[in-house]
C-alpha cells in the first residue's frame, strides 16, 4: 500500500527480527539481483566484467606471459594453433599480451576508483554535513579542482613523475576526478541532512560520526558505487591513451603499449597486414568499457527509484500516475 496509508505503521510494529532480516536481504540483495538479471543489457555487463576479472586472475596462470620472439614476427591471426590471434612485430603472442595486460589494468582501475570515490566521499560528506566555513572552503577547493582539466593535468603529472607502479598510475589518472564527484556528494548530503530521519537522529543526540555512518553514507552508497565504476572507466580511457601516446613509461604490459608498438613500429595504420596488432587490443578495450557502461547503467536502474517505480506498476501508480502517489 501507499507510504501514507494509515495502516502501515501498525504493520511494521509487528515484524519480528527475523522478518526484518529477510526484508533487508530482499531489499538490498535479492531484489537488486533480480533487477540486474531481468534486463539483458545489465546481464551482459555483469558477464563481461566477470570475464575480465577471470582473465586477470585465472587467465594469467593458464596463458604464458608474453616474451619477444615467442613466435615468428607478425604471425597473422587464425593461422596457427600456437598463436591463434597471431604475434606482434616483436614476435609476442597477442593472446599473452592481452591477458597479461589485464592485472595491471585492474589494479589501476581499483586504485583509481578507490582514490577518487574515497577522497570524494570524505570531502563531500564533510562539506555537506558540517556546512558553514568548512563547507565554503571545501566547496571552493572542489570547484577549482573541477575546473582544471583532468586529462591534461594527468598528462603533465605523468610526464614529470613517470610513474611505474599500476597503483600510482591509477591515482595519477584520477587526479581530479574526486573533485566533481565530491561536489555532487556534497549536495546529496546537504539534502539528506535536512531529511526527517536525520533530523530525528540529531534530536535523539546521536553522535555526528554515527549519523554519518548510519544515516548518510548508506544513502549515498549507490551513487558512490556507480561512480566507482565510472572512475574505473576513466582509468581505462586515460591509461590506454597515455600508454598509446608514450607518455607513461613502458614498464607494464598494457593494451596501450601494444597499440603504441603497432602504431609506431609495425606501421599498422598504413599496412593492412599489420592492422590486427592495433585492432585486437582496441577490441579488448571497447568490450571492457562496454561492460562497465552496461553495469553502471544497470546499477543506475536499480538505484533510481523513479525508474523502478515505472517498471513495477504498483497500486500507488494507478492512484496517481507518474508522481508515485506518495505526495
Amino acid at each position: 500500500m501507499d507510504a501514507d496509508s494509515p495502516f502501515r505503521a501498525y504493520e511494521v510494529e509487528r515484524r519480528t527480527r527475523r522478518q526484518r532480516w529477510a526484508y533487508k536481504w530482499d531489499l538490498y540483495v535479492a531484489s537488486p539481483l533480480r533487477v540486474v538479471w531481468s534486463d539483458w543489457r545489465t546481464r551482459v555487463g555483469v558477464l563481461i566484467v566477470v570475464f575480465y576479472l577471470l582473465m586477470g586472475t585465472v587467465g594469467v596462470v593458464l596463458v604464458p606471459p608474453p616474451e619477444t620472439n615467442q613466435g615468428a614476427l607478425h604471425t597473422q591471426p587464425f593461422q596457427t594453433m600456437a598463436h591463434p590471434l597471431g604475434t606482434d612485430g616483436l614476435g609476442q603472442d597477442m593472446i599473452s599480451l592481452i591477458v597479461h595486460a589485464t592485472p595491471p589494468m585492474l589494479e589501476m582501475m581499483l586504485s583509481g576508483g578507490v582514490f577518487a570515490t574515497g577522497v570524494a566521499t570524505v570531502l563531500g560528506t564533510l562539506a555537506g554535513y558540517r556546512a558553514g566555513r568548512i563547507d565554503s572552503v571545501l566547496t571552493t577547493v572542489m570547484d577549482m579542482a573541477t575546473a582544471i582539466p583532468g586529462l591534461p593535468l594527468a598528462i603533465v603529472v605523468a610526464t614529470i613523475l613517470q610513474p611505474e607502479s599500476p597503483w600510482v598510475v591509477g591515482i595519477v589518472l584520477t587526479i581530479n576526478v574526486w573533485a566533481g564527484l565530491g561536489r555532487s556528494i556534497r549536495s546529496q548530503v546537504l539534502t539528506l541532512r535536512e531529511s526527517d530521519y536525520v533530523e530525528a537522529s540529531r534530536t535523539m543526540r546521536i553522535r555526528t560520526p554515527n549519523i554519518i555512518a548510519r544515516d548518510i553514507v548508506p544513502n549515498i552508497m549507490p551513487y558512490i558505487t556507480i561512480n566507482f565504476v565510472n572512475a574505473g572507466r576513466i582509468v581505462i580511457f586515460s591509461s590506454v591513451a597515455l600508454y598509446f601516446l608514450g607518455v607513461l613509461p613502458f614498464t607494464n604490459t598494457h593494451w596501450g603499449v601494444t597499440m603504441n608498438r603497432a602504431y609506431r613500429n609495425s606501421g599498422a595504420l598504413y599496412s593492412l597486414g599489420a592492422s590486427y596488432t592495433l585492432l585486437i587490443p582496441m577490441i579488448a578495450i571497447i568490450v571492457l568499457s562496454l561492460g562497465l557502461v552496461l553495469l553502471s547503467q544497470g546499477a543506475d536502474r536499480i538505484f533510481n527509484p523513479r525508474v523502478r517505480a515505472r517498471r513495477s506498476k504498483t497500486i500507488s501508480d494507478s492512484e496517481d500516475p507518474g508522481t508515485g502517489g506518495a505526495r
Binding site: D4, S5, E319, G325
Partner: peptide, 9 residues
C-alpha cells in the same frame, strides 16, 4: 477515501 481508493481516478 484513503489513498489508493480510486478517488483521484
Amino acid at each position: 477515501g484513503e489513498s489508493g481508493s480510486g478517488k483521484s481516478m
